[in-house]
Computed example of a mutant assay.
Amino acid sequence: MMKNKRTIILTSVLCMLPEILSLILYKRLPEQIAVHWNSAGEIDGYLPKAMAAFGMPFVFLLINLFTNISLLYDPRREGQPKALRAIVNWLIPLTSLILIPATLFMSIGIKIPITSLTFSIVGIVFIVIGNYLPKSKRNYMMGVRIPWTFHDSDNWNKTNRIAGHMMVAGGFVILVSGYLQVNAVLHGVSLIFIITVLIVVIPFFYSFFLYKKERDKK
């Protein structure tokens, strides 16, 4: 338990490290800072510089605390794969350390391929999580957590296996899209969004199909 609390403290500190860069660059920052880009790399969201420079790290901090505390006090924590739990523990602080500095540097004129960077990060995260997802047992924080998977361990295992394979495959597609810097938009819809919807919807109906098939046997 003490080790886990140290992890929460350390990851929280890492989430706030970009504050140092914000202090260094603050006078050079424009009054409005771009903080969101669409899949075509076009800016579609701004924040006042004080909020972007000092508020965003706090947002990552709050998400990190919520995630880590939820993982730590999950009543079925023993079902969480240690490797996957470690990935989730460190995902938010690492994202904060990458995306916030990139956002600040871009605001002062340094060119960074933000779309490619985002797609690469999301692709890698999907691949890594998808690789460990089939190893998870029933728990309240990780995996495809719907009524039918909780109802039956075999349903849980099969559903999370297919979801994990889909995440790995989808992650590779997203990663390649980011690496090749292609315009990953299909009829105005982000490739990341499309793949995420498929990863959510297909395992959902697959799990229901398994549940219904098993119930019809009785």
Rank of each mutant, 00 (worst) to 15 (best):
R6Q: 09
T149R: 00
S136F: 03
F60E: 09
V182Q: 09
N4F: 12
L84E: 13
M1P: 06
L186W: 11
S207W: 06
K212H: 09
P134V: 07
T11I: 08
I33D: 00
E19D: 12
K158D: 06
K212M: 10
T118H: 06
V173S: 03
S120I: 15
D154V: 04
P81W: 10
T159F: 01
F105T: 02
V35H: 00
K213H: 07
G188K: 09
G109F: 01
H187V: 11
F193R: 03
E42Q: 14
S177G: 13
E31W: 02
F126M: 15
A169Q: 00
I87V: 15
V122S: 11
V59Y: 05
G178F: 02
T95I: 13
S136K: 07
P203C: 11
L21E: 05
V176F: 14
K212Y: 12
V128P: 03
K27C: 04
R215W: 09
H151V: 00
G79L: 07
V189L: 13
I100R: 10
P18T: 00
I192S: 03
I20D: 03
L17N: 05
I121W: 12
F126R: 11
L65Y: 03
R161I: 01
I110K: 15
V182R: 14
K111S: 11
N157C: 00
N183Q: 14
L14S: 06
I146Q: 05
Y140E: 02
V182L: 09
E214Q: 15
S12N: 08
S12M: 12
V144F: 00
I110T: 14
I146W: 00
A83N: 10
S153F: 00
G164R: 00
S207D: 10
V189M: 12
N4V: 09
L14Y: 04
K135F: 07
D154Y: 01
G178H: 04
F208C: 06
S39Y: 13
E31R: 02
Y179E: 05
V35N: 01
V176Y: 08
I100K: 01
W37P: 01
Y132G: 05
F60Y: 13
F54H: 03
I108T: 11
G178S: 10
G170K: 08
I9G: 03
N38T: 08
I87F: 14
F105H: 04
I87E: 08
S120K: 07
L210Y: 06
L210K: 09
P81K: 12
F204R: 07
S12W: 08
F208M: 15
L29G: 15
Y46F: 15
N38F: 11
F172K: 04
G109S: 04
V168N: 01
G109K: 00
E214P: 08
W156Y: 01
I8M: 10
R76N: 14
K217D: 07
V35T: 13
I63D: 05
K27H: 07
L99I: 15
Y140R: 00
V144M: 02
I124T: 13
S22Y: 02
F205P: 08
P18I: 03
P134E: 05
A169V: 11
I69Q: 14
A34G: 13
R161N: 02
P147Q: 01
I63V: 15
